[in-house]
Design a protein around this nucleic acid. Structure first.
Lengths: 132, 132
DNA sequence: AGATTGCTTGACGTTAACGTAAATGTAACG
DNA sequence: CGTTACATTTACGTTAACGTCAAGCAATCT
């Protein structure tokens, strides 16, 4: 019950987030996480956990790790570097446009596939009737 | 104006479907297409074009080429194999459910990112005012 | 004939996101 | 102190869907 352990080992992280050690090391190599070290061992901070949550969410959304890294950087900017902040902001806007385009395409694909399935459904109903 | 040309060269195919020669050769290697040969050259038939249309549609739906190959093979089985047809149908339905879930998550992601950007926008407006 | 196109078949290169194995380190248990 | 249990780094392997040469044949233009 010490307040020291705001820190988690790699295994605790793996259990908590259902990822492999390799994944966490990989994310560190890609500069998505920045665990401290206890000697040679990684100790993940609260901040790492917050970032990992966002990373996994981003992945569910279909973002690449590189996309995610850039977006996380956006969250990080303590507002000191104005020019960079603005550039990042514009980048995020571009990304948003991409996402909306992607959603539009997805909508079309879903509509088409639904139409396919409706046709197929009728065919299969026919097969079922014929089979009786 | 000869009726001979139900056949198309690789370049005609590329222009018609907006794909590269490499792609068509790749699809042939993967047994998704079966062009005839005029000597050494590929000649794509009406059937190849029909298949390619389905392949590209499948890709828009997010199916892998391997998935697509299996589905095309099922269409080929002249409809004699009802069980397989039904399995394919179910597979497509599952895929549709995936896509709709993905869209739902994407909607959330877009909303979140928009909120982030609104906050960032206000911040940047503030910065601009401070800079004057 | 020579040169230009366009097609062919290899066959290695690329990207993303890790998996997997090897060699080594170290901390705690008994 | 020896073994077990995890940890670390290094580095090669994997999958999908082509891209990108390289080298050579074949028909066509000049």
């Amino acid at each position: 019950m010490q307040m020291t352990s705001d820190l988690m080992t790699i295994r605790q992280m793996c259990d908590a987030f259902d990822v492999t050690p390799r994944t966490l090391r990989f994310y560190e190599a890609k500069e998505l996480l920045f665990p401290q070290r206890d000697g040679t061992r990684r100790m993940f901070t609260r901040r790492d956990r917050a970032r990992l949550t966002l990373i996994l969410r981003g992945k569910r959304f279909g973002f690449s790790l590189e996309d995610i890294r850039q977006i996380l950087d956006l969250y990080d900017r303590d507002g000191s570097n104005h020019a960079q902040t603005i550039r990042t902001y514009e980048l995020a806007q571009a990304r948003l446009a991409q996402m909306e385009a992607q959603r539009a395409e997805l909508d079309v694909a879903i509509a088409e596939l639904k139409a396919e399935l409706d046709a197929g459904g009728a065919m299969i109903a026919g097969l079922r009737r014929a089979a009786e």
